[in-house]
């Protein structure tokens, strides 16, 4: 009995509901991102795109999902069975975990409680995201290795080395932002950009944003950085042996990663749930919170569109070009950016 009393039940229920909403909303948005991808590709290639299922083809993602579930589940004979199943699960979990520290909006007031629209405001928020991102590599590596196929293994090794290389430049670009904000909590970073007379961080860190954006694209394995998939040299990359919903998990986790990295870029550089040219404190808290969520979702949608735009415009890099770009261009640039930011901050302090 004593044990039951020790837990703040209202808080627990509130957080569980919030987690359920955010996870299901992310999955739903990811579902429609796959649809958006096909539509954007269609527009860029001057063709109609999926338009048969439902009005304007709006039910297409459900048809795709049903198709994936209905397909035969094949586990290769020579595969390592437990790890073969663990791989897609890990990829999906790692993709969803980063939503815990993203501030979706300020707080709403409901039933006399002030509910923060963020699952956990921990004071190492952005480092947590980096920890989760580095876990994402395991989904690819384990899946690729367990398939027991040399193309899968090569793709997995490529994917892992790409992720590690670009994480470095990403971290260095991030340090410059953290020097300005002086905090690792995403909520604090967003609130600083919302203050009156404050510009978004992208105004102070244009180069940092560019580096971060390129690295985010590489981390999500999006074209032009989709070397782990590289259909025409590695057949289908690390998920070649996968079928049915396990393949669906891999494909789906890429879209969730895209949403999460867009959300993080919006929070770090574009003011998160800040609505430009509007002082939110003049609005009622609930209205401001809902408008804030919409503002953040709009920013995420814009980033996702840019991701797709680039995918259907630019061809894939060669592997040595990818490594050269990461190690010889982005990392030195990020270092210079970091030093310059530090110097300017010192100069301002006098």
């Amino acid at each position: 009995m004593n044990l039951l009393l020790a837990i703040d039940w209202a808080l627990l229920i509130e957080k569980l509901i919030l987690i359920a909403i955010i996870v299901f909303a992310s999955l739903g948005i990811a579902l429609y991102t796959t649809f958006a991808e096909r539509k954007v590709a269609a527009v860029l290639q001057d063709r109609p795109g999926p338009n048969r299922a439902g009005p304007f083809g709006l039910f297409q993602p459900f048809a795709d999902g049903l198709k994936l579930i209905m397909k035969e589940e094949i586990i290769p004979n020579t595969a390592n069975k437990s790890l073969f199943i663990l791989g897609p699960g890990l990829a999906m979990t790692a993709a969803l975990m980063s939503c815990a520290v993203i501030p979706w909006s300020s707080h709403i007031e409901l039933f006399d409680r002030s509910i923060d629209l963020q699952i956990a405001d921990i004071n190492i928020g952005i480092l947590y995201v980096f920890g989760v991102v580095s876990m994402g590599v395991y989904g690819i590596m384990i899946g690729g290795w367990a398939s027991n196929n040399k193309f899968s293994l090569m793709a997995a090794l490529r994917g892992a080395s790409q992720a590690i290389s670009y994480e470095l430049a990403m971290g260095l670009a991030l340090i410059a932002v953290l020097m300005i904000s002086g905090s690792l909590s995403l909520k604090t970073i967003v609130e600083q950009q919302m203050g009156p007379g404050q510009l978004w961080n992208v105004a102070y860190q244009p180069l940092g944003f560019l580096i971060f954006f390129i690295c985010a694209m590489a981390e999500c394995n999006r074209t032009p950085f989709d070397l782990p998939e590289a259909e025409n040299e590695l057949n289908f990359g690390y998920h070649q042996e996968y079928s049915s919903m396990k393949l669906g998990f891999y494909l789906f986790s890429e879209y969730i990663n895209m949403i999460m990295s867009s959300a993080i870029m919006a929070c770090l550089f574009f003011g998160g749930y800040d609505i430009p040219f509007l002082n939110e404190s003049t609005l009622a808290p609930n209205v401001a919170a809902i408008l804030g969520v919409l503002a953040l979702l709009t920013k995420i949608a814009i980033f996702i569109f840019v991701f797709m735009w680039i995918r259907w415009t630019i061809p894939r890099f060669r592997y040595d070009q990818l490594m050269n770009l990461g190690w010889k261009t982005l990392i030195p640039l990020a270092l210079v950016n970091m030093l310059a930011t530090g110097a300017v901050i010192l100069w301002h302090q006098g």
């Binding site: 480092l127 947590y128 980096f130 920890g131 580095s134 876990m135 590599v137």
Partner: peptide
């Protein structure tokens, strides 16, 4: 905690 994860588990 998080550096332990990033450095040891992640890298």
């Amino acid at each position: 905690a998080i550096v332990n994860l990033i450095v040891y588990a992640g890298a």
